[in-house]
Amino acid sequence: MLKKCMGDPSFIIPTEGIEIKDSLSYEEIPVHILDRQVRKLRTTEVASVKVLWRNQFVENATWEAKEDMKKRYPHHFESEESVDQGTNFLLSAL
């Protein structure tokens, strides 16, 4: 049996900018990296980044492995590498 449902207009996502494929699917593209963290396991450390995806709200951002994201989307990590190189330069100058 179906029940009457009142829709919430805040959950409506505009579809003009979404490229929908013939299989009615689309690829999510990361827009911004919101946060970074390193989790310590027993013997290893796992670096993670919190990613804001296109057509999603900040509340729906997900934690992804940093190395995987770096391989797939290296342009999001270019500024981080330049900061690391600058730090290495300063340390070598001392």
Rank of each mutant, 00 (worst) to 15 (best):
P14M: 02
L34P: 05
L52T: 09
E78W: 11
T44L: 13
D68N: 15
D68S: 15
N55W: 04
I13H: 00
G7P: 04
I20L: 08
T15F: 08
S48A: 09
A65Q: 03
I29R: 05
I12K: 03
S82Y: 06
Q37T: 10
T44D: 06
K21V: 07
G17P: 05
K71Y: 03
D84V: 06
E27A: 06
E45F: 09
F57W: 05
V58D: 09
P14S: 07
T43S: 14
L2Q: 15
I20W: 11
H76L: 15
H75A: 08
H32S: 10
E64W: 00
L2C: 13
I33K: 04
E78S: 13
L24K: 15
A47V: 04
D22R: 07
V46G: 02
E59Q: 08
V83D: 06
W63Q: 07
E64F: 00
S25R: 06
E19G: 02
V46W: 00
Y26H: 04
V49E: 07
G17D: 14
P30C: 01
L91D: 14
V58P: 09
F57K: 08
S79Y: 06
K66A: 15
L24N: 13
F57H: 10
N60D: 14
N88G: 02
K70L: 04
F89W: 08
F77D: 01
E80T: 03
G86Q: 05
M69A: 11
K4G: 12
L90I: 13
P30V: 02
F57Q: 10
K4Q: 12
R36L: 10
H76W: 08
I33D: 00
I18E: 04
W63L: 03
S48W: 09
K71P: 00
D84C: 11
K66N: 10
G7I: 04
E64I: 02
S25H: 07
I12N: 01
P74D: 03
F57T: 13
S92I: 06
F89L: 11
L94M: 10
D68K: 15
D22Q: 12
K4I: 05
I20Y: 07
E45I: 02
T44M: 08
E28R: 01
T87L: 12
M1V: 11
W63A: 04
F11M: 01
L24I: 03
E45M: 09
P74H: 01
E19V: 13
V38W: 05
S10I: 02
E81Y: 03
A47G: 10
F11K: 08
E67W: 07
S10T: 13
F77Y: 01
L34A: 01
E80G: 01
V51W: 00
I12V: 12
K40C: 04
Q56P: 00
K70F: 13
D22G: 15
W53H: 09
R54L: 12
R42P: 10
R36N: 14
P30E: 00
K71C: 06
V38Y: 04
Y73T: 02
V31N: 00
E78Y: 15
S92H: 03
P74I: 00
I29V: 13
V38C: 12
L94Y: 06
W53L: 03
F89R: 11
S23M: 05
P9N: 00
Q37L: 06
K4A: 07
E80L: 12
P9G: 02
R72S: 13
A61C: 02
K3S: 14
N55L: 09
G17C: 05
L41H: 11
